[in-house]
Design a protein around this nucleic acid. Structure first.
Lengths: 222, 222
DNA sequence: TAAAAATTTCAGTTTATTTTCAGCTTCGGA
DNA sequence: TCCGAAGCTGAAAATAAACTGAAATTTTTA
């Protein structure tokens, strides 16, 4: 689950990044409107947190432009309470939700969960493949009633695979989804994590869920 | 599916080539405008990815010239964010779509699919010949409800034949489409792959889809 | 700040795919 | 019906993709 935060105040931006990362989101930052728009338009994110007041291009414009480009990523707009009146305009521009600063971090998390859940057919907040389940709200991974402990990256990779279950994802796609855009990760890293996941998820079970499709990539399926 | 990338920055060009090849496209590179125009005019490609800023001849000119020559291959124009204003002019010059750098590779793939889908009668993203189907989005090949596993090259070859179903393609054409133009592959290699495909696709079925037309080439048809 | 854990890279191995080779078969025209 | 070109085939050689154990590096935790 990859989130773009567009916020010009570095302090706030970094705090958000840190907090969200602790919640196992992958977070990229953009510090002005133009940069934010370009990042957002890449289509590489599952959700965008957008400050209203931004240098270069403000949140409303970004929003409008993205929607015009037929990019329908969920957008959560941040606004100072003094700008509350722009709320209506904000919704018109295509934002999906609103949050006025200052806000409690829990509030933000709740809304992110609400937004990211929306377009999915996830059964509650749980992704399932065969007898394997991944609970998005408490990060519990369970196979055959046995809890499985994963590291942060292992979890992200598994989540990515499970969100696209049955679909083949190649290593570059996985890198793009699971790691931040700056990082240049070797394809071998993905291989290593797939191996780790297999040790924990498949090793002790007859049915192997993670499949290698040589020359194409990996997928998870029952 | 053969794509020409015209891009003077070698790093980007090679990254694109690599990425697209992993998606089973056949990719050729041109590094300046003139070279790009010549390659494009050969009519050997299914799609052209064109950088706006190029030495010798820029993207807009290439576009215009090609359209003047009545060459209507889909063109996807790449532009840096600072050049966003040229967008309008770009569409006027005959480009079919636009993408601002930097972009996520998935975005590029989505647009390529959109463009290449346009002139075809592909039922969604599925190519069909008789009871054989090839799903372009998850690489699944199915005949009579039975999944068929193909290697990467086998898949590319089959995709090529199916995109031009009923049309006879000779070995040189197949080499040009499935392998890159630099590679010097023996015609026998094609024979070997046709054989492999037949083993997997035709062997256990009464109706044989892959046909040899001695002296002319191969075709796939019902 | 030292120890533990997680992340990433490295280098060697295994495994599958790609390509070539050499001999064989088939087809069509002299 | 015989010959040569075109195509087919099984297997070997060359290449490439994926896997693996362990080391190096970074981050987290106590």
């Amino acid at each position: 689950m990859k989130i773009l935060v567009v916020e010009d105040e570095h302090l706030i931006a970094n705090a958000l990044k840190k907090g969200l990362e602790q919640e196992h989101y992958i977070v990229d930052l953009a510090f002005d409107g133009l940069e934010g728009y370009d990042f957002a338009a890449s289509g590489d994110y599952d959700l965008i947190i957008l400050d209203l007041m931004l240098p270069q291009m403000n949140g409303l414009e970004i929003c409008k432009n993205l929607r015009q480009e037929k990019i329908h990523i969920p957008i959560l707009m941040l606004t100072a309470k003094s700008q509350l009146d722009d709320k209506v305009e904000g919704f018109n521009s295509g934002a999906d939700d609103y949050l006025t600063k200052p806000f409690a971090f829990e509030e933000l998390l709740a809304r992110i969960r609400a937004l990211s859940r929306r377009p999915q057919k996830t059964d509650g907040e749980i992704l399932t493949v065969g007898d394997l389940s991944l609970n998005l709200s408490n990060y519990e991974v369970i196979r055959q009633n046995k809890k499985i402990l994963l590291s942060s990256k292992e979890y992200s990779l598994l989540e990515c695979l499970m969100r696209h279950s049955d679909k083949i994802l190649n290593k570059d796609q996985l890198i793009q989804h699971v790691w931040s855009y700056e990082s240049d990760i070797l394809p071998n890293t993905v291989e290593v994590y797939i191996r780790n996941l297999r040790q924990k998820i498949d090793k002790n079970y007859k049915v192997k869920l993670i499949k290698t499709i040589r020359g194409f990539g990996y997928k998870i399926s029952d």
